[in-house]
């Protein structure tokens, strides 16, 4: 047994599993295990108990409309209040696409129907007919002050707008981002990171994987905890090939 251990809470893996979402969990798992960290992946679906102290990183992916409708009650009414507290307490969350939208205040469908969401972070989404479907490039500033490029793929018809307490997660270099207007992608509130980027998002972007791992382990083991060095040669190759491909 390693002294350092980490539990990834994979929310609704049987329903929120679109566009390679599981790759994100696999990336967190792989880059932690390669550092000798003991990793447990805990599946939390409808009816399952949610114990915040057991989870170090929470992951919510996106689902098809039919699937998202199935879990809405459980997410909004049963686990919602607990998730809100976890986020307020600084727990690390990664939420992609549908998972991102569902954390917000509401989703206004393009026919005017308003769907109440969790209200865990101050964002709202408006559905439009036209979908943004394309490869994307973003830029992110790491805690070290270094700026890195990040590659992804977006596929969403929702336009998300951030309230004053929420910061954008990344800057759009290529793609539509949150709403196709303000040049930003995703949201960050405390340690809750949200993005529209599938791709899968984390595997090619080792800097972001490490940011999440380090934040979660600092939460758990104290601010002095430093994530051990680990090569990202193969991840960087994938990232650079993707950037090359996207830039033609």
């Amino acid at each position: 047994m390693s002294e350092i251990n980490l539990t990834i809470g994979h929310f609704y893996p049987d329903l929120l599993n679109l566009y390679g979402d599981r790759g994100n969990v696999l990336a967190l798992y792989t880059r932690a295990v390669r550092r000798g960290i003991d990793v447990t992946i805990k599946e939390i679906s409808i009816g399952d108990e949610l114990n915040p102290s057991e989870i170090d990183i929470a992951f919510l992916g996106g689902g098809q409309d039919n699937e998202q409708n199935i879990l809405k009650d459980d997410l909004v009414h049963v686990k919602g209040p607990i998730i809100k507290n976890m986020i307020e307490d600084g727990k690390v969350f990664l939420c992609i696409c549908g998972g991102y939208q569902m954390l917000g205040k509401y989703y206004l469908e393009h026919d005017g129907n308003k769907l109440e969401c969790l209200g865990a972070i101050d964002i709202y989404t408006e559905g439009k007919k036209e979908r943004f479907i394309q490869d994307t490039i973003y830029e992110i500033e790491l805690p070290s002050g270094k700026t890195v490029k990040v590659a992804g793929f977006e596929n969403h018809s929702g336009r998300t707008h951030l309230g004053p307490s929420v910061k954008p997660f990344m800057k759009v270099i290529k793609g539509a981002g949150n709403n196709g207007e303000d040049g930003f992608e995703g949201a960050r509130y405390k340690n809750c990171f949200c993005t529209y980027s599938h791709g899968s998002f984390l595997p090619k972007n080792a800097a972001v994987t490490d940011l999440l791992l380090e934040t979660a382990l600092k939460n758990k083991y104290g601010e002095d905890y430093v994530l051990p060095e680990l090569s990202s040669e193969i991840e960087d190759l994938a990232l650079n090939k993707a950037l090359e491909y996207l830039n033609g």
Binding site: E233, I234, E235, A238, N240, K241, A242, Y245
Partner: peptide
């Protein structure tokens, strides 16, 4: 393939040594 970088990483993350 044109996206060999993505596939290479996919196979590597499955537990295949580089």
């Amino acid at each position: 393939g044109e996206r060999y970088g993505d596939m290479l990483l996919r196979v590597n993350y499955s537990g295949k040594d580089q």
